[in-house]
Write a protein that binds this DNA or RNA. Structure first.
Lengths: 253, 253
DNA sequence: TGTCTAGCTGTAAGATTCGACAGCTGTAAA
DNA sequence: TTTACAGCTGTCGAATCTTACAGCTAGACA
């Protein structure tokens, strides 16, 4: 085994930074802290985005970034989000990837030519070498933290900066999650254990009569609990109740 | 901005390792590779676990580990999984945490005394200082990669080993996901666009009649599509179809 | 003691879904 | 040309769900 104590140097990303990030209560302060941390890793540019579900089939974006305004503007006006290989990559992967690697192969049938165009254009805006870190968890569909350096020879993979960028990404993800949830308007009254049980069995395809027998209560009572669950969730029927409870993580296994 | 090129040293976790991990097609070879990588980070012991959903409300564990057999045996026999603070922490967080920090605070009402007991016992088996990395994504409910060193003075936070442990964890998560999916028995025929549309609206609480009007087709046709979707998913009703499609990520937003 | 909540139960009418019957068009691959 | 499949449509009876009505027990809390 190697002797880590002799190999270490002071990391760029430490728990002090985490404390500062978690203390951010506005988008501006969080952006400023992330900007500083990214710079210390040698990246002039960065962007964090997360897709938060608002209904079972719709989601809204949360984005903070330290990208050049002109590039960001051009990107949005061109509708690049859906064609961006870093975004499609992040949806289905967990390991970070260099932009160079993403440019050469296409994921999920995304047009490879357009992918290369996006990276070429990005380079012309000063984003020469990039790294994208997929993010998952905390109730978001998926998220992404991308870093970019103007120096095409930035030694991302040849240094521990690669790893530190991943660590910073998780910090930002957690901090952003706090910010987003702080602004969450909809507050759902917690479900009772019985309501959760009934919803679970409903999600397993059981009818009211079957749930009643499993829980050894009357069918009327399961209807009662499921109706209460529907009201608390603010939905119109069991399908939607099951769906909403699932995406909100209310039916913990 | 700092000059990363002058600060870097060769990382312990690199893309060569990633390539080797992704090439593993058995639990044994994967375990062996992870064992080596953990050792290079100064950790004698490690464990990877993931909870994969098999139905909307049930999941099964996938675990590979390089823990002492005696400790693993005692852990399982004592039923520690549900009380383990690292596990409950991983479920709701994305940033890595030292065991020392987990021992001092309790999450989700987990008995703090039992938490401390687990860590104390672990130490007696040679797991003195530990780090747990939560993992999410790739269709699992949540996962965890824990590292432990027998040296209570292992400089986890004072070095970039902290960050590299996170990077390695994502590599293992991706590699394990490949292994798990390789053994996935149940293959679901892909849903047609119409079936997905109908399921989406069903998840939004719409009735067959309403979906028909939204999609400008007859009610009979929505019933037809939803019935086909139920057959493909192998479920008995719409509730279960919505639930299963959601957890399998078939209703992409 | 009164109020709140969780949990429980009943009847009944109307809306919705399920399941099996049967049959159409258009496109694309073999 | 045949085959396959996506998409589409119909009827009908039975099962299930939704939503009214109305009322019970037990424990927690002020």
């Amino acid at each position: 085994m190697s002797s880590p104590r002799e190999l270490h140097r002071k990391p760029h990303i430490d728990t002090d930074l985490l404390t500062r990030l978690m203390a951010c209560d506005t988008i501006e302060t969080l952006t400023s802290e992330v900007q500083g941390a990214s710079h210390r890793l040698g990246f002039e540019h960065w962007i964090y985005g997360a897709l938060m579900p608002v209904t079972p089939t719709r989601a809204e974006e949360f984005v903070i970034n330290g990208y050049p305004d002109e590039w960001r503007k051009h990107y949005l006006e061109s509708g690049y989000t859906m064609a961006d290989p870093t975004v499609t990559y992040a949806r289905g992967h967990v390991i970070p990837s260099l932009w160079d690697d993403l440019a050469s192969r296409s994921y999920r049938g995304v047009n490879s030519d357009q992918a290369k165009l996006i990276f070429t254009e990005a380079r012309s805006f000063g984003l020469a070498k990039g790294l994208s870190v997929p993010l998952h968890g905390l109730g978001c569909l998926f998220g992404i933290m991308s870093y970019a350096a103007s120096d095409p020879k930035h030694p991302i993979l040849e240094s521990t900066i690669h790893a530190e960028a991943v660590l910073l990404a998780t910090y930002v993800h957690q901090a952003a999650s706090l910010l987003i949830n702080r602004g969450a308007s909809e507050k759902i009254r917690p479900l009772t254990p019985r309501e959760r049980e009934c919803l679970k069995w409903a999600a397993e395809g059981k009818s009211g009569w079957e749930i009643a027998h499993v829980l050894k209560i009357s069918e009327r009572t399961t209807v009662f609990h499921l109706m209460n669950a529907c009201q608390k969730l603010g939905v119109t029927n069991r399908q939607q109740a099951v769906a909403k409870a699932l995406v909100l993580g209310l039916l913990e296994i």
